[in-house]
Nucleic acid binder design. Structure first.
Lengths: 198, 198
DNA sequence: TGTACATCAGTGAACGCGCGTTCACTGATGTAC
DNA sequence: TGTACATCAGTGAACGCGCGTTCACTGATGTAC
């Protein structure tokens, strides 16, 4: 028999493993057997710690939310000013995608499920919360005079949020030839030119 | 018995119906029973015209590619210059999303399938082809002097491609309050400022 | 123009695989005395 | 410190639902004569 763990520790381990699988395969490809295998257990063991598949996805989504929101907070805390915070955030998203933690992928595949309305709604709320956090950075930039005050903060925010997404998809198609970090730097220059007070 | 149709006509009808379902539910939620119902037939009737589910998705993807590439060609033909073509393309994407033909949704959910490597690869090729077509507009803009020559055309292209994507997701979360057409206009102003020769 | 025949799109019952889930059982771990 | 017991994480067999797929059959449509 495999090493036993108390249930809190297992839940965390499983949620984290589930999130990795989701990043790789999306919610369609996610299944209990693979999750069990990835933590070295047998499928039925999952049910000691979760009510079922949908419960696993729910908890994984909580973890995802905490990590993504944490990314914004970390960028805000470490940067000197709002614009620098955005640049830092972009860089870290790029690095995350590079290492396989495909954020946009998870968002898109989670929100696709028509049947599980609750999961879909939750995903959309998480996304909206992320957008709101980025938008507050943009507004702070406007208040501090770094960001032009005549632009719509929501538009600027969604432009920012979309910058990294297509790159993630293209990276799969082009493989190693496409360097996301370099792309992030280039696209940041464009974004800065669009929104910065000159 | 329902009205009979010759197989070419049915295939087209089914492929189109499949694409609609994919836009609504993603490839995860797509199933043969719903497809059959949406064309007024019984599930087994699908197999008169397709080899199976994966074949339906394949043909629907062909249709999707033709429509999306057609959008770029139409914009190019109708516009006076490359920059106008991009603006027109953006507007039409916005309208398409508004009417439920969720382009990014389809892309994301199709490319998520780890198991069906062929489908995934095909989706990525389609996306890469789309990016290449938009990029050629950007390059033409540079040649004609409308677009600044010191920017990386691929970066500008991916910035453009990402502009509409997050808006589609947010629209679900915020519902009617969020007007995609208005968003498209605002974000276009930002894009123009980033890339246009001043 | 009408009848007989061939073709083939549509039907419905049944099948089977994959996968989520259940449950009685095991045996490791930690606690009480 | 050692033994007995309770707890509970992990197991493996089995179950059943959903859904894609098959197949023998039906009957509409179009063609030959």
């Amino acid at each position: 028999m495999t090493q036993k763990m108390n249930t809190e520790a297992r839940r965390e381990q499983m949620a984290s493993a589930a999130l990795n699988l989701l990043a790789e395969r999306g919610s369609e490809g996610f299944n209990i057997a693979d999750l069990a295998e990835s933590v070295g257990l047998v499928p039925s063991a999952i049910y000691r710690h979760f009510e079922g598949r949908e419960d696993v996805l729910d908890v994984a989504l909580d973890l995802f939310r905490d990590r993504v929101y944490g990314l914004v907070e970390a960028a805000r805390n470490e940067a000197q000013d709002p614009l620098m915070a955005l640049e830092l955030l972009l860089t870290r998203h790029a690095r995350l995608i590079e290492s396989g933690g495909a954020v946009p992928h998870i968002m898109a595949s989670m929100s696709a499920s028509e049947e599980h309305a609750a999961r879909r709604a939750k995903t959309e709320r998480i996304f909206a919360g992320y957008v709101a956090r980025v938008e507050s950075l943009v507004r702070e930039g406007q208040e501090s005079g770094q960001v032009r005050s005549d632009i719509d903060p929501t538009a600027a925010t969604l432009l920012f949020v979309g910058m990294i997404q297509p790159a993630a998809l293209l990276r799969h198609a082009e493989g190693e030839r496409f360097d996301i970090t370099v792309h992030a730097a280039r696209v940041w220059d464009l974004f800065r030119r669009a929104v910065a007070q000159d």
